[in-house]
Simulated scan of single mutants.
Amino acid sequence: MTRRPDSDEARTRIVAAAVRCLARHGVRGLRMADIGREAGVSSGLLYYHFANRDGLLAATLAHVNDTAAAGRARAAGDGRDALIDNLVDEISDDPEVRDHAAAWHEINASAVFDSALAAHLRATTADWQRRIADGLMQTAGKTAPPNRQAADAQAAIATALVDGLSQRWLTGRLSTDEARALLRRALIRQFGGDAAGSTPCN
C-alpha cells in the first residue's frame, strides 16, 4: 500500500517534533502526547505512524542521520573538501542543527541502558559511517583511501570526532567556533589535504 503525500508530510512533522521534544526534555521526559501536540496532529494519527515510543525513537535517529546526509549530498566543490565542510557544519548555532545534535546525544546516553535503543543506534551509526566511507572512496587523488577497509576506518574515526566535540560544544565546554575549528583541524589530519581554504596542520 502506497502512502499518500499528506500522510508522508504528517510523518515528517511528527519526527521533526520528536527531535525538538528530545532536545528540550531528553529521552526520559519524552511523552507521545507532547510530541503529538508539538506536531499539531491527533493522537490517532500519531499512533497510526508510530505504534510506540521505540519506533518513533528509531525514526528520529534515521531522520537526524538523513538530514545530515542530505547536506552532504548538496555540498558543492571537491568531494573531500565538501565532506569535511559538511561534517564541520554538524556543529552550528543554527537552532535545527543544535536540536538534532542534542537529540542524537540524548539517545546515545539512554542507549547505554536500553538494548533496543542501542540496536537502533548501532544501525544508524553504521549507516552514517557507510555514507562517509562511500564519499571518501569517490574522491580522487593522493588523499583517497587505498581500499574500503581504510575508508571504513577513517569514517569511524570521523564520526567519533563529531560525536565527541559536539558533546563538548552542547555542554558549553567548547564554544561553537572552538569546536568547529578543532573538528576541521582533526578531519584535515585524518583525511589529508586542504579543505575549504583551511591550512593543514603540520
Rank of each mutant, 00 (worst) to 15 (best):
M1E: 05
T2E: 12
E9H: 13
T12S: 13
I14M: 00
I14V: 00
A17S: 00
A18V: 00
A18H: 01
C21G: 01
G26K: 01
G26E: 01
I35D: 03
G40K: 01
G40F: 02
S42L: 04
L45Y: 04
L46K: 03
Y48A: 03
A51T: 12
G55S: 05
L56S: 04
L57I: 03
T60H: 11
A62W: 09
H63L: 05
H63R: 10
D66P: 00
T67D: 07
A68L: 11
R72Y: 03
R74F: 06
G79A: 10
G79N: 06
D81R: 08
D81L: 06
A82I: 01
A82N: 02
A82H: 02
I84P: 04
N86M: 10
L87P: 06
L87C: 07
V88F: 02
D89R: 13
D93S: 13
P95F: 12
P95M: 12
A101T: 14
W104F: 14
W104P: 05
S110I: 02
D114Y: 08
D114C: 08
L117P: 09
A118M: 14
A118Y: 10
L121E: 14
A123F: 13
T124E: 15
A126D: 15
W128N: 15
R130C: 07
R131A: 07
R131K: 11
I132C: 11
A133I: 05
G135N: 08
T139H: 07
G141M: 03
G141D: 03
K142V: 14
K142D: 12
A144K: 12
A150S: 14
A153L: 13
Q154N: 09
A155T: 08
T159K: 13
A160Q: 14
L161H: 11
V162R: 15
S166R: 15
S166C: 12
S166I: 12
Q167G: 10
Q167Y: 09
R168E: 12
W169V: 06
L170I: 05
L170A: 05
T171I: 02
D177G: 09
E178N: 05
A181V: 04
A181E: 10
A186F: 04
A186Q: 07
A186D: 07
R189E: 10
Q190V: 06
F191Y: 06
A195F: 03
A196H: 10
A196D: 13
A196P: 05
T199W: 06
P200S: 02
N202S: 06
